[in-house]
């Protein structure tokens, strides 16, 4: 099983090595939990039954003062464990963003792109963002992009609306977009885009109130019918936890509490992620 949405922001080894890392976690990512040894991250994956996790940085240094993990830090963690799959992040409004993404792919070996228009403060339909989408498409990197509500103080809701991405989705059919957090609360708009566009995928990392199980029961059984996932979107969903904002085990359990068949769960928890990452069975 693959977790497509984790943030390496509470790693003790990085906190000991990089002077700004603690401040990044507390002031930019704004998480209050204790820093933990890297091995605990792997144990959290173990108890959830997760084999590999996608590590997502966010280059929000221009507006927040610090990036939420750097591409280099992500690459460093990937070198420590083959169970990590590193993504890169660049600031679309910064000069040379497309070139920086290319370097991250070719020099650091990062496998995808992560953007967060709200935290990075850029409109997802900005022409400069299109240059980055173009670069990601050329590099065959999937794009995990924050959609839906962001808790981060000082961020607007509007850049998280999934329809803000429709123009880009249409212009770059060769770029696979993964809308993070199921774009909650704009769930139906996200569903419509995933149904309509072959290059739009959704991740399950949505949790805004109640427990993971209660929230999943609401969103995936009452807000939209579970049959929609089972029948029409089974090939368009990837499991994401948003760890460490929530423990991976709780999100796996919430997903499994839905009335989905094993075949559908297998695609959400593994098959679709492998396809997006270009992982073949012989790897």
């Amino acid at each position: 099983m693959i977790d497509f949405h984790t943030h390496p922001v509470l790693i003790q080894e990085l906190a000991d090595k990089y002077p700004d890392y603690r401040r990044m976690a507390r002031e930019v990512f704004q998480i209050g939990n204790n820093f933990q040894p890297l091995e605990v991250f792997l144990l959290q994956m173990d108890v959830a039954g997760i084999e590999c996790a996608v590590l997502l940085p966010i280059d929000c240094a221009r507006v927040r003062g610090l990036a939420v993990s750097s591409n280099e830090q992500v690459a460093e963690l990937c070198a420590r464990s083959p169970r990590f799959i590193g993504f890169a992040s660049v600031d679309p409004l910064k000069e040379g963003a497309a070139q920086e993404l290319e370097r991250a792919a070719k020099s650091l070996g990062l496998k995808g792109l992560k953007l967060d228009p709200a935290l990075q403060d850029f409109p997802p339909d900005h022409p400069k963002a299109f240059s980055v989408y173009e670069a990601a498409a050329a590099l065959k990197m999937p794009l995990v992009i924050h959609t839906g509500m962001s808790w981060a103080p000082g961020t607007a809701l509007e850049p998280g609306h999934p329809l803000k991405l429709e123009k880009a989705v249409r212009q770059f059919p060769g770029l696979n977009f993964v809308f993070a957090h199921f774009a909650w609360p704009w769930v139906w708009e996200a569903v419509a885009m995933a149904l309509k566009y072959p290059n739009v995928y959704l991740d399950t990392s949505c949790l805004y109130y109640d427990s993971p199980r209660e929230f999943f029961q609401f969103v995936f059984a009452r807000q939209i019918p579970t049959t929609l996932l089972e029948r029409s979107l089974r090939g368009k969903l990837v499991f994401g936890s948003n760890y460490p904002r929530v423990e991976i085990k709780n999100m796996v359990r919430a997903l499994r509490s839905l009335s989905l068949t094993e075949g559908c769960l297998k695609k959400i928890l593994l098959g679709n992620a492998k396809m997006l990452l270009g992982i073949t069975d012989d790897h």
């Binding site: 990512f29 704004q30 998480i31 209050g32 939990n33 808790w151 949790l207 805004y208 109130y209 109640d210 427990s211 993971p212 209660e214 460490p244 904002r245 929530v246 709780n250």
Partner: peptide
């Protein structure tokens, strides 16, 4: 049914 299952702004995450 726990009241603790809500967003805790001081922790930047939900308590569940």
């Amino acid at each position: 049914d726990y009241h603790h299952h809500r967003y805790l702004d001081y922790d930047g995450r939900l308590g569940f």
